[in-house]
Nucleic acid binder design. Sequence first.
RNA 1: GGCCCGUUCGUCUAAGGGCUAGGACACCACCCUUUCACGGUGGUGAUACGGGUUCGAAUCCCGUACGGGCUACCA
Length: 561
Amino acid sequence: MKIPLFLYFPRSSPIQHLPSTIHHLPSTIPHPPSNIFHPPSTIHHLPSTIDLYLCAMSRKVRVRFAPSPTGGLHMGGMRTILYNYLFARQNGGEFVLRIEDTDQTRYVPGAEEYIFECLKWAGLEPDESPLKPGQFGPYRQSERKPMYRSYAEKLVKDGNAYYAFDTPEELERMRQEFKSEGNASPQYDRLTRGNMRNSLTLSNEEVEKLLSEGTPHVIRIKMPESETISFTDMIRGEVSFDSSLVDDKVLLKADGMPTYHLAVVVDDYLMQITHAFRGEEWLPSAPVHILLWKYLFGIDAMPQWAHLPLILGPNGKLSKRDGEKYGFPVFAMNWTDPRTNHTAEGFREKGFLPEAFINLLALLGWNDGTDQELFTLEELVQKFSIDRVHSAGAKFDYEKAKWFNQEWIKRKSDAELAPLVKQLLATVAIAPTDETLVRVIGLVKERCQLLPDFVQQSSFFFEAPKQLDLDAVKPKWNDAKRLFFAELIRNFQLTQTWVGADLERNCKEIAAANNIKPGEVMLPLRIMLVGGKFGPGVFDIVEIIGKEETISRIEKALHLL
RNA sequence: GGCCCGUUCGUCUAAGGGCUAGGACACCACCCUUUCACGGUGGUGAUACGGGUUCGAAUCCCGUACGGGCUACCA
């Protein structure tokens, strides 16, 4: 039986394994009255399955992908998009694309358009986006700037955040000062905030004065002294943090823009997001986001989180650099950095079919429990389930990725492939007729892993090979063979109907008459026509390239032998 | 360093207390093939380690080791 995904049942009861850190907490913790904050004595009261069910039932499923337009779209991001898309389609929900461009110093022209193009190529188009606004716009955070400040101010008013006036130099000095063996990177937190210039340490008058003078400042969350912050991740089950170990993250920057932490919570709320998928690298900042939900909108409104496992390269989180170093694409499409003009390879240009790309991405961390590995997007929509997503990171295997592509090339019809191959052949100035091209594709497609392989595998059908691998022929070349080929040419010249099977029979008869085994002349003939030791059956090639071209290539080769 | 997450063939993974630990990629061999592929058959190859719980542990618990992530007025 299939359980709709939004009825999420934790795999293990949260009560079974208390976090070990819980025992070390001081015993004098205040007990806040929320059901998601668990001082030791109330740890059992997680929201029940029924609560989650009721909460989810009342809302239409809405998910979002929120990239920051700073460069190429990583395959990990692409997989997050896929899972979002599948989840939305499967639950009759909506998939939103929101641009997280709150860091104006990292603005990269063209990056946003590039992301739209990736989605289009993969066929994972959002229901709402900057290009297709719904009723929750705007869909760029830079255009939502005015909304964030009031939420930050509310946090300050309620005592959950504070103004901080420290300059970058002062922050750096603090980090140096508190650096020790036991603490490699001191945080702005309960231990250090008392030494800094903020509305916690300054008098009200001073704060008012600084504010009215327009002194640059940020707003930071004030992490509680000692609470256990827990939530149930859709993939990992219960995860807990000790609030005293989390730093006072900046919520609103000096330029008035929110940081990711504030923006993601405010926007997810305003856009009525019900399920939030993101990479595992976000797990450590989850407690900040949970607290913000509690302070701002109530924990019941918070989406269910799923932190997806990372896609790993040969050494850790897969990076653009890995691709360059080991020769495989990391981005969905080619990305050229406008500043350096440097291009990083993409799956599209490398010759992957979007179907294959989606297929391999889906299987990186998920499977349906059977031996099936090839899935169409429609099948994935049917069969995907978030609780079959692995919690461990998956190392990317380019060899297997190519296998997926090869399988998809074989699955596609010759006619479907034709326009793609035609485009590729055009780059080497070959312009075949559609009819011939489709025939050729049928003969060579199972020899191609990547689309550009079609050029090597099919160009000799349309033009004589520029180089012949004569070294494969010369060692065993002799006068008997020379005579044979002379006779073969004569025979071909006299042949009226040009049918591969008949020609092959003739060829074998001539060989037999000259006391030559057919095998001895097949390879030389192939080299003469193809140039190398590859390609479909020799007489399939002979038939397609035709009488004149066949004879001409044999004659040309004979001069070289 | 601290916190968090993780650990089954080289890689992706199956097995939700009960078989000989299954499949796929890659690799090797053979078959098919007058080339290269496709296809077919077979093979090499894994439960990190140590303790528990249990009649029985890859599976549940604890510890250790190892791997990864985070530790910015970046996302």
